[in-house]
């Protein structure tokens, strides 16, 4: 285990830890988005999907714990590496000019903590419901079937006319979601591209492909996820297929 600990504590070892944890979280983001896009198929489709996810509590909790551990590992490795970077340059430059880095790459240490806050808010909003005006949890019906209300919950979460809250608060929540998704796109765009290099999956031949893949996925995540609150705001999701 000695060699493993030495590797795990090395700078590249920590980068690889960050890349692998990030890769799984990245896959979760894609799966989560694809699942949620079923909101466009109507209330029945989304609610059945929600009931399917809730049907096996043991698997659900295993997935949740794995994700939580990966989030902790991802943050831990980034904090250790950030501290090492600070130690490596105790005295900064009076003037420093960028020639190649991107806004996304330079703001990873800012977008990350904001995304953490967003994830906490998102869980309180649409999973736990403590900041949701009227979250309906899944319930077992008289027929024995599990009935979920994901569609109604999403509609109420983003609609400006939801009872029990104000249009200003709802507008603020939608704005926060959209800003968070833009940051997520930037974070994952740089993260996905970096992941290839950190895991050594680089070859001059595939470099352009890796870059294009990272950009495309970032755009898809932003557009896909933002489409949901925007669909509620424009009435595409809500009244028609809802109640």
């Amino acid at each position: 285990m000695n060699w493993f600990m030495r590797f795990a504590k090395s700078t590249i070892g920590l980068k690889i830890t960050m890349a692998i944890s990030g890769l799984v979280l990245f896959a979760f983001v894609i799966g989560h988005m694809v699942g949620n896009l079923q909101v466009f198929l109507g209330a029945s489709a989304l609610n059945h999907y929600a009931a399917f996810l809730q049907s096996e509590q043991l698997l659900l909790w295993i997935a949740r714990i794995v994700l939580l551990v990966l989030v902790v590992v991802h943050i831990w490795s980034s904090v250790v590496l950030t501290l090492r970077a600070k130690v490596a340059r105790p005295q900064g430059y009076r003037k420093w000019q960028s020639k190649a880095s991107t806004y996304a790459s330079r703001t990873m240490r800012v977008s990350g903590p904001i995304l953490l806050l967003f994830i906490i808010f998102h869980l309180l909003h649409l999973t736990i419901g403590s900041v949701h005006p009227d979250l309906q949890h899944c319930a077992v019906q008289a027929s024995g079937d599990l009935q979920c209300f994901a569609y109604q919950n999403v509609s109420a979460a983003f609609s400006l006319s939801t009872a029990g809250t104000t249009a200003a608060i709802q507008g603020g929540i939608v704005a926060f979601y959209i800003v968070a998704m833009l940051l997520l796109g930037m974070h994952l765009g740089h993260g996905a591209y970096s992941m290839f290099r950190t895991l050594g999956l680089t070859n001059p031949r595939y470099d352009k492909m890796a870059r294009a893949f990272a950009t495309a996925v970032a755009v898809i995540i932003v557009v896909g996820n933002c489409s949901i609150p925007l669909a509620v705001l424009t009435g595409l999701v809500g009244q028609a297929g809802g109640h």
Binding site: T11, L14, K15, L81, R84, A85, V87, A88, R89, S98, K99, A100, S101, T102, S105, R106, M108, H190, Y193, S194, F196, R197, T198, G200, L201, T202, N203, P204, D207
Partner: peptide, 23 residues
Amino acid sequence: GPCSNHEECEAYCPKGIPVEVIG
């Protein structure tokens, strides 16, 4: 320090060493 894939090194390298070497 660690690498954050900013790629400033490649851009400022007087010999044009590509970041591929890091990968």
